[in-house]
C-alpha cells in the first residue's frame, strides 16, 4: 500500500518538525505526526501507518500501539461534526447527564454513534479541565463551556443547515 496524498503533502511539515526535535528523537515524532495526519484527514489511514513507520524508521507495531492506546486517535472516520460531552464528576454535578440525554434525542444518536448521513457523531469524553465552566461540550475539538442544552441545540440546528 502506498501512502495517501495527505501523507505526501505533509512530509515537508514532518521534516520541519524533525529539525526542531533533538537528534535521536525520531520515535518521539510518532504522536505529533499521527495528530497532524488525523487533523488533515479526520482519521489515520492504514496505508499511512506503514508510510509513517518507514519515514521515522520505527516499528509499525509502535504506531499501531499508539493508535489503540490514545483516546483521541482514531483509525475510522467520525461524522463531519463531532460532538463530545464530558461526563466526569464536575460536569455531572452541573447537569452533563441531562445535557447528554437531550443532545442524544436531538440528534437521534446514542453516544458513540454516527448519523447515517455521516454528518454527526455523538460521544462522551472524560475530564477536559473545564470543571469551573461545567458542563463542557466539544464540537470538533472546540470547547463550549457553561453549555446549556438550548444553546447547544440551537448550535446543532445551525450545523444541520450548514
Amino acid at each position: 500500500m502506498s501512502a495517501s496524498p495527505t501523507f505526501a503533502s505533509l512530509v515537508p511539515e514532518f521534516d520541519a518538525l524533525r529539525r526542531r526535535f533533538p537528534p535521536g528523537f525520531e520515535s518521539s515524532l510518532v504522536l505529533p505526526c499521527l495528530r497532524r495526519l488525523q487533523e488533515a484527514w479526520g482519521h489515520v489511514e492504514d496505508s499511512d501507518i506503514a508510510a509513517l513507520a518507514e519515514y521515522l524508521a520505527v516499528p509499525r507495531v509502535q504506531i499501531e500501539e499508539a493508535l489503540s492506546f490514545y483516546g483521541q486517535l482514531r483509525r475510522e472516520p467520525v461524522g463531519r461534526w463531532h460532538v463530545e460531552v464530558c461526563r466526569n464528576v464536575s460536569c455531572s454535578l452541573r447537569g452533563a447527564e441531562t445535557l447528554l440525554e437531550r443532545l442524544s434525542s436531538k440528534l437521534g444518536l446514542a453516544p458513540g454513534d454516527t448519523s447515517a448521513d455521516g454528518r454527526f457523531t455523538l460521544s462522551t469524553c472524560e475530564c477536559l479541565g473545564s470543571c469551573g465552566t461545567a458542563p463542557v461540550v466539544l464540537v470538533n475539538g472546540v470547547y463550549h463551556e457553561n453549555a446549556s442544552a438550548p444553546e447547544i441545540e440551537r448550535m446543532i440546528e445551525g450545523l444541520e443547515r450548514a
Binding site: F21, L31, F69, Y70
Partner: peptide
C-alpha cells in the same frame, strides 16, 4: 529550546 509535546487523550 522549549518544545510543546501534545498528548492524545490519556489520563
Amino acid at each position: 529550546d522549549v518544545l510543546i509535546y501534545r498528548g492524545a487523550g490519556s489520563y
